[in-house]
Simulated scan of single mutants.
Amino acid sequence: MKVPSLRGARSARVLAVTAVAGGALVAAVLPSSADVSTQSPPVAAVRIESPATLVARGAAIAGDVSVVCQPGATGNLSLEVTENAGGKIAKGYGSTTITCTGSFQAVTINVTAQPTVPFKAGTAFGSANLFLSSQGIGQAKDEREFKIVRASSKLA
């Protein structure tokens, strides 16, 4: 009975290990030409900040939204808010136009309550949307819960 030779299997393993090691060495030594994260930053990002402040005894809230987008881009930033205010649903919407600086910007949007139910101090749900209309069309969205406080509570 003839014993099978391991020489062929061993040389294949050596070649495979050598190829992987060689490829890793080449990748480590050569400069990267496709660093995607620095060459193509995201078009935009938004984040609803907490807390928002009651305005005019609940007729509106002043909600802060953090925005970052490509410098020079312009667009529309909107904030829609829904809150369970004592068993009734308070809703409102506000928007503003922005010009992007390329850095984080804090933008305050006044959200006016619909006529029948005012906002109250408590927890609300918001949806912020940014639609860019210049220098390449783009958009960003954030949805989250946030607190609504009275004006004097925000400073404390």
Results as ranks from 00 to 15, higher is better:
Pro41Gly: 06
Ala44Trp: 07
Ala44Gln: 06
Ala45Thr: 10
Val46Phe: 06
Arg47Ser: 13
Ile48Cys: 11
Ile48Gly: 08
Ile48Asn: 07
Glu49Asn: 14
Ser50Ala: 06
Ser50Leu: 07
Pro51His: 05
Ala52Thr: 02
Thr53Glu: 14
Leu54Cys: 11
Val55Tyr: 10
Val55Gly: 04
Val55Asn: 08
Ala56Asn: 14
Gly58Arg: 09
Gly58Glu: 07
Ala59Leu: 15
Ile61Arg: 02
Gly63Tyr: 08
Asp64Ile: 12
Asp64Glu: 12
Val65Gly: 02
Val65Phe: 05
Ser66Val: 13
Ser66Thr: 12
Ser66Lys: 11
Val67Asn: 12
Cys69Ala: 14
Gln70Asp: 09
Gln70Trp: 06
Pro71Ile: 07
Pro71Arg: 13
Pro71Val: 12
Gly72Met: 01
Ala73Leu: 01
Asn76His: 07
Leu77Gly: 01
Glu83Gln: 15
Glu83Asn: 00
Gly86His: 02
Gly86Ile: 02
Gly86Lys: 01
Gly87Asp: 06
Lys88Asn: 12
Ile89Ala: 10
Lys91Gly: 08
Gly92Asn: 01
Tyr93Gln: 10
Gly94Val: 03
Thr96Lys: 05
Thr96Cys: 00
Thr97Asn: 09
Cys100Arg: 01
Thr101Val: 02
Thr101Asn: 00
Thr101His: 03
Gly102Tyr: 08
Gly102Lys: 10
Gly102His: 08
Ser103Met: 11
Ser103Ile: 00
Phe104Gln: 15
Phe104Cys: 00
Gln105Gly: 11
Ala106Cys: 00
Thr108Arg: 14
Thr108Trp: 06
Thr112Glu: 10
Thr112Asp: 10
Thr112Pro: 03
Thr112Asn: 09
Ala113Lys: 11
Pro115Ser: 15
Thr116Ile: 08
Val117Trp: 01
Phe119Ile: 10
Lys120Cys: 05
Thr123Glu: 12
Thr123Gln: 13
Thr123Trp: 09
Thr123Arg: 13
Ala124Phe: 03
Asn129Ser: 15
Leu132Ile: 08
Leu132Val: 05
Ser133Ala: 11
Ser133Cys: 00
Ile137Ser: 13
Ile137Met: 09
Ile137Tyr: 09
Gly138Glu: 02
Gln139Cys: 05
Ala140Phe: 03
